[in-house]
Nucleic acid binder design. Structure first.
Lengths: 222, 222
DNA sequence: GACTGTGAATAAGTTCACAGCT
DNA sequence: AGCTGTGAACTTATTCACAGTC
């Protein structure tokens, strides 16, 4: 089953495994079982074995997975073995906080360029990365080999930014703007919509208390 | 099929419908079909009809959905008809940006308290809401009837914060800390993990270019 | 004996297709 | 004629269960 079509959910779980493996490596744990990974991630052991098996047979039967080896493999699969370059568009409150957050921890993705259309913000530096004028977006992204675009601009500007990033060859977008971006197939979008997240949580917040409209017990964590 | 067990995915789509309905209401559109909602949200019309039908029959056959009525209904279902109260824990870079973001737009969830354990941050105000010392968390949350907790503290503090919020009766958590929180059943967690999001995007970023480990075309947006 | 890798069974979620109102 | 509401068919994802390997 190597190199088949891999479910998006499986790809999204890989970074979770990677995080746990990094912790285990720091604790000098040399070998780990899918059962132990299950305990630490909250996913089932079968699911973990299946996810990993999509990419190859990384474990040893009767033994488990070699922590450091599996960690290296997952980093390779995700392309994190050589730092992936990202660009942030929009250096407002949220954008600036995101940039600082992303730049101050080592997860294999590095912000190499920041753009903003407001001349008052251009020229500033965020954690050592200069804020460039929006006009340079296509040029700079191509020159710096940017692969991931982080969109933190107002809703009405997001679609245009997505298109410009796509034109510059950026194929993965992390979108914080509260709109659904329309992009062509090779481009992949992941939305982080705070309003939507809060609003759907409100449903569960109400359910716990008086007069819930739909009585249910939502499935707990695994 | 009224009031049955409602899939979590359906609940997460409701705020998307709400957003579109609000736009339509502003444009004075009185009636909308599931096909039009599909066009605007990217979900299929059947899915939209099914999602809405979980909560009741809100439409009129042969006509469609009355924009304002459906909007009101969804707000009721989500409990947004009376502002849901939220508390932010952690007023660092990210927490502060989140607070400003959430406080400056009207989506039915209101941050009524902010907590931080750093005395240097206590006493400050973020968009009019004072930063309180962490010790007041349980008391203030109970007194202010907080339903949603937003966790923006460092990873190692997150679990403890979650437990304290739960003890204060908060049943819905939006977690920005890069850890899986262990909570008891009535409490519902939604994770927003930027590192994980970026790392999984890296997979698709690499796929578009040279030497991808697993060649595939990820499913595009609907 | 322990643990992986994987087909088979099950569950969850989506799409089809159409009956039922307006 | 038009559009909702919903069982049935299908697709996707998860769990079961066990053969295979160390």
């Amino acid at each position: 089953m190597r190199r088949a079509r891999i479910p998006e959910v499986s790809v999204r779980r890989l970074p979770v495994y990677l995080r746990v493996l990094t912790e285990l490596a720091e604790q000098q744990v040399e070998v780990v079982s899918s059962a132990e990974l299950a305990r630490r991630t909250g996913f089932s052991s079968e699911q973990i074995r299946k996810d990993l098996a999509y990419f190859g047979a990384f474990g040893t039967r009767g033994v488990g997975y070699h922590t450091e080896l599996l960690r290296t493999r997952i980093r390779q699969i995700l392309g994190l073995d050589r730092d992936v370059r990202a660009a942030l568009v929009g250096a407002g409150n949220l954008g600036t906080a995101l940039a600082r957050y992303v730049l101050t921890r080592d997860h294999g993705v590095r912000i190499v360029a920041i753009f903003d259309s407001d001349p008052r913000r251009v020229g500033a530096e965020i954690a050592g990365v200069p804020v460039r004028p929006a006009e340079q977006l296509e040029d700079a992204c191509r020159r710096l080999d940017v692969r991931i675009g982080i969109i933190a601009v107002p809703a009405q500007a997001a679609q245009q930014v997505a298109e410009r990033l796509a034109r510059a060859g950026v194929v993965a977008l992390l979108n914080f703007a509260p709109v659904r971006l329309r992009v062509e197939p090779p481009v992949h979008v992941q939305d982080v919509d705070l309003s939507l997240a809060l609003q759907s949580l409100a449903y569960y917040a109400a359910a716990g208390s008086a007069a819930p409209l739909a009585v249910e017990r939502p499935a707990g964590e695994g």
